[in-house]
Computed example of a mutant assay.
Amino acid sequence: MATIASQIILHPVVSQGLKFGGTTLGRDKTYRALQYFSRFFAWYLINKGDKIEAARWSALKAHLGTARKLMRLGKPMEHLQAALRAAFSSSPALETITTIARQLGYFGYLSYDAIVWASTIKLINVTKETAARVQKRAFQFWVAGIAFSLIHGALKSLRLAKESKALKASKTWGEKDLAEEASRETRVAQITAARNSNNAQLALDIFDVWIPASGAGLVNLSEGTLGIAGLISSLLGAKAQWQSVNGKK
């Protein structure tokens, strides 16, 4: 019995899960997935007419949302630092501009989001109208951040595709070119990894953008649709974080 228990408790997947959960981002992605599943499931139950059970899931969604806002209180400064670092990077001009704009968009979103959190827990007292305006402005900054992220991803995808095509066209053969070929293959591998990472971010942004767009009044989507979109983007983010902390590509 002790052997079976040790095999379960010390199983590599359990250890990997603990390592994933030991990171702030890992916990946030887990809470976010539960939050958006709750959003979808509450909508589903309401449509079935089960309002009592739906209220439980709506409460879970609300509490997880508040908890996640608390976890993000220091994030605005991180995005300001990222914007400043991007300004000194050697990336192409348009990619640099869209990166800075993206980070500033997220800075604005999280700054207003902190005010929403403070209002929710009654740390500050604002009228319902003011709270609604602050929440809408947060969504507007979030939309802007994701929009610039999508533009950045598209620009980067085009650049990497051109570089990959040029490298493949320059392929040489022969023993005298072995060193050059090894260097080229290394660069091809780097570009492939960068393209995979960029495509993953694009997919995440495509699912995420509908949430703030709906909150800002730009689109009108059901709670169920937004819940599914948020759940998928959360799982994509969780997958990337799992691979990062566990050393997998």
Rank of each mutant, 00 (worst) to 15 (best):
A138H: 06
I9V: 14
L45M: 13
W43D: 14
A101T: 10
Q35H: 07
A213P: 03
G105K: 00
K61Q: 07
A203L: 12
T98C: 14
R137W: 15
S119H: 15
L110M: 12
G230H: 00
V13C: 06
D28E: 14
I211P: 01
P76Q: 01
A189V: 02
M1D: 10
L94M: 10
D205K: 01
Q243A: 13
E163W: 04
G215D: 13
G215S: 12
L235T: 06
P92D: 07
I52D: 12
K29V: 02
A166F: 02
H11D: 13
G217I: 05
G49D: 07
E129Q: 14
G237L: 09
S214Q: 15
Y109V: 00
P12C: 08
N198I: 04
R137V: 14
E129W: 06
M1F: 10
Y112D: 11
S233Y: 03
M71D: 04
G247D: 08
R195F: 03
N198D: 07
A147P: 01
L235H: 05
L80G: 07
A2C: 09
G217D: 07
T225M: 12
G108F: 01
I146E: 05
W142N: 15
F139A: 14
A54K: 02
Q140S: 13
S91N: 10
S89M: 10
S183L: 04
S157Q: 04
S89H: 06
T23R: 03
D177E: 03
S157A: 05
L110F: 11
L123C: 11
Q103I: 02
F148M: 12
T99H: 01
T99C: 01
Q190C: 01
L94W: 07
P12R: 09
R68K: 08
R32T: 02
R195S: 06
F139R: 09
Q201I: 09
L204C: 03
A203G: 00
I46H: 09
A2H: 12
G145A: 07
A138C: 09
A132R: 15
A55Y: 02
G237N: 08
L34Q: 06
R39I: 05
G237E: 10
Y44A: 05
L104P: 01
Q201L: 14
V14F: 14
R102N: 11
T192S: 11
P12Y: 10
Q201D: 12
Q243L: 14
I206T: 11
R187L: 10
V219P: 05
T127F: 07
Q241S: 13
W242V: 05
V116S: 08
A166C: 05
G108D: 03
T120G: 12
W57I: 03
I46F: 11
A238R: 06
A194T: 01
A62Q: 07
Q201R: 05
I151Y: 04
A169G: 00
Q190F: 01
V245H: 11
A131N: 13
L167G: 00
F41C: 03
N198C: 05
S58P: 00
E95Q: 06
A154P: 00
G105S: 03
I115G: 04
R195T: 04
S119E: 15
A229H: 04
A93C: 06
T186H: 02
R159P: 00
T186P: 00
I115P: 04
D205T: 02
A67I: 10
